[in-house]
Simulated assay, not measured.
Amino acid sequence: MLHEVKFQSFNERDEVYGWIYVPAAEPKGIVQIIHGYGEHSRRYLHMIVKFMDAGFIVAADDHVGHGKTALENDTWGDWGDKGCHTMMEDEHRLTELVCEKYPNLPYFLFGHSMGSFIVRDYIAKYGSRLAGATICGTSGVFPGAEDVAKELEKAVADGKGKESDPAYAGSLLGWMCERCGEVSIGNEWICADPYVQRDHAEDPFDAFTKPTLNQSLLYFVQMMNVINGTEWAEKVPKELPIYNIGGDQDPVGQYGKGIYEVSNWLYETGHAVDTKVYSGFRHEIHNYAQIKDEVEYGIIAFMNKHL
């Protein structure tokens, strides 16, 4: 069974579009997939099917400024005016909608890349209501983010928040192909498989190649800043199980260093964290043919352990 849902965004302007995928068997839990920057939730269909086969209802939406939500609202790259917690609050609203339809089931989150940032923000506020959370392709202290934030703050203060200057995104993300060898598309850092690179670049629902407003990019950087350090980790419920996964050739995770940095913040504040780093793989570990089944089975095993 498939439900399409829509709801008012926290930004008080857009309607967010989402989907609830229900297996044809009695479900044992629910997992909400939270996609990354510039993409959309249908890029996770392989994972969605695996989770359904394992007995989980799967919920997912397209963030403001992304995917079908951006298409229907005509707001590509525009996240509204309500700040860096907008997507997190939208994800919590989706959780509420799903739980209204399917109450009293253990509830898990999975977030990749920016989705992992959203999960980290979510669990600091609403983590006590969850059975567990997986963060994938996450980041420690992101290189250069503080300097870019200052530049974006000035641009917004100067009245340029609704403009889109690619120089800011270039300063923030332009270095991420530094270990990729020959670069032709510019997204090679996501995965070494040329097919995945082309699929990502040519996807008409993908906002990665569309302009992001300066104000929205500022929210993105601010989102990374509010989930850093033990100050953030202290807000996460101690009893919440967390699974932290990524590739050691992923620039978002600072080639493994940032992944462990996040786990260490959590360990230092008394949390239980399982950490798995896949050697030789870039950002989208769930899209490598060699390991995607292993990655998904690892997430399923984590959820089964904490039902």
Rank of each mutant, 00 (worst) to 15 (best):
I242N: 00
G115Y: 11
C180W: 01
E151F: 05
R282S: 08
V31E: 06
H286C: 07
S263Q: 08
W232A: 10
G159D: 12
V98D: 08
I190L: 14
Y168R: 08
E296K: 00
G65N: 14
H92I: 08
H3I: 01
V98H: 06
I245V: 15
A167E: 15
K68E: 15
C180M: 07
Y122V: 03
Y168H: 13
Y267S: 11
A60M: 14
E284R: 00
V226A: 01
I285W: 05
M87Y: 10
K150H: 08
R179Y: 03
I259H: 02
A169L: 03
N73Y: 12
V58L: 05
A133L: 09
C99T: 15
G55Q: 06
T230L: 04
I299E: 13
S164M: 05
S171A: 15
Q197D: 05
G77L: 03
E234L: 11
G159T: 06
G18Q: 00
E202I: 00
E151N: 12
G115K: 06
A207V: 01
E268D: 11
P143R: 10
E153Q: 15
H200I: 01
I227W: 12
E151K: 15
I299W: 00
A167G: 11
M88S: 07
L45R: 09
Q249Y: 06
V5Q: 08
Q222L: 15
E234W: 00
I227A: 14
G83I: 09
L266A: 10
K160H: 13
H46W: 03
T212Y: 04
P106T: 11
M303H: 14
I20Q: 07
E178D: 12
E234M: 08
K101N: 03
W189Y: 09
A54M: 05
N73T: 06
G140A: 02
E15Q: 14
A289W: 04
R42A: 10
L172R: 03
E146W: 00
D165Q: 01
G170R: 01
A25T: 12
A207S: 14
V64H: 03
A145P: 07
W189R: 00
L71M: 13
A133W: 02
Y255C: 01
M1N: 14
P251C: 07
E26N: 10
G140Q: 02
E26D: 13
I123L: 13
L97H: 10
N214Q: 03
Y278V: 13
N264K: 13
Q254S: 13
S184N: 12
K154Q: 15
G38S: 09
D81G: 00
G280I: 06
Y21D: 09
A131W: 01
H306M: 10
N187L: 01
V183D: 02
G127W: 02
I123N: 10
S41W: 01
Q32D: 08
M87L: 13
F220G: 02
D61K: 01
G132R: 04
I227Q: 14
L94H: 05
A301N: 13
S41T: 09
V226T: 10
N73W: 12
Q8T: 06
